[in-house]
Design a binder for these strands. Sequence first.
DNA 1: TTTCTAAAGGACCAAGCTGTCCCCTTTACT
DNA 2: AGTAAAGGGGACAGCTTGGTCCTTTAGAAA
Lengths: 152, 152
Amino acid sequence: MISPTAEYGLRAIVTLASDPDKAMTATQLAEATGAPQGYLSKVMQSLGKAGLVSSQRGVGGGFRLARPANLVSVLEVVEVFEPVKRVLRCPLGRPEHSPDLCPLHQRLDDAAAMVERSFAETTIDELLSHDERHPRVWTCQNPGPVGGPDKA
Amino acid sequence: MISPTAEYGLRAIVTLASDPDKAMTATQLAEATGAPQGYLSKVMQSLGKAGLVSSQRGVGGGFRLARPANLVSVLEVVEVFEPVKRVLRCPLGRPEHSPDLCPLHQRLDDAAAMVERSFAETTIDELLSHDERHPRVWTCQNPGPVGGPDKA
DNA sequence: TTTCTAAAGGACCAAGCTGTCCCCTTTACT
DNA sequence: AGTAAAGGGGACAGCTTGGTCCTTTAGAAA
């Protein structure tokens, strides 16, 4: 559905949102989200360039959400890493999105549209667990690298 | 949404379905679907192993749908190439699909479930254009390699 | 000003996916 | 039999992604 990279980004954003006043370092975020440390810093860079997080160097620095969590949609985060590919253009088709896709591509686009809509309608604050049994810790108990421990 | 490979597979299946009595060679299918010739034959092999198409070697051979188009779902075709990844297991989570995903993964799984359902409910015959202006020719005018002519 | 800390960023590696090529096997037709 | 037409399948090239590592830059506090 979404790439590992986008998942890491989402996990990091949610983690930041769970304690908005505290800056978190890439290392802390990597621990909290189960993402590889070195890779996560790249992910955070991307989020920074996209304006979703602000970063502060030096002692006591780290990352913060650039906006309150209720003003950030899942879609925004995902699209930093992978544009949701709609099929407006019949692949090789006419200029612009001519109104007649073939049935196959219409269905494929419908599916993409559903996902896009779902992501657009969900804001980050809706993803916070208000369950105080796991305060400000990743709710799914340290997920680990994406797709990691399925084999176990 | 789906990989180029899965798209090629779908296009080929739909093309076969548009004239179920005629065997089509990989070359013909490649032309009709705009897929690279050499690659499509790999795709067709996969569809064959999955039991969705039957193949016949030698002169006059080619590929045919193994089942009538109304008994083949889009999901079946897509899953030959890429399993729709549901998130039943909290990545690293408890054994089995414990009933409590964190809100993030619940949302992600919801999206995957929507897509899966949409694909499962659509059969190949629903994708045939009954528009006789383009009889048994790819409706989107020779799509070309996936993602091809967007730059143009 | 120095020093410590943390992000920024580049170099690099491994794996997977897309795609090409070429040869082998099977089949039908003459 | 022989030959041409078709799929089967392996080898391999190129690109993108995921991931590691190391150096550079910037900020804060002593």
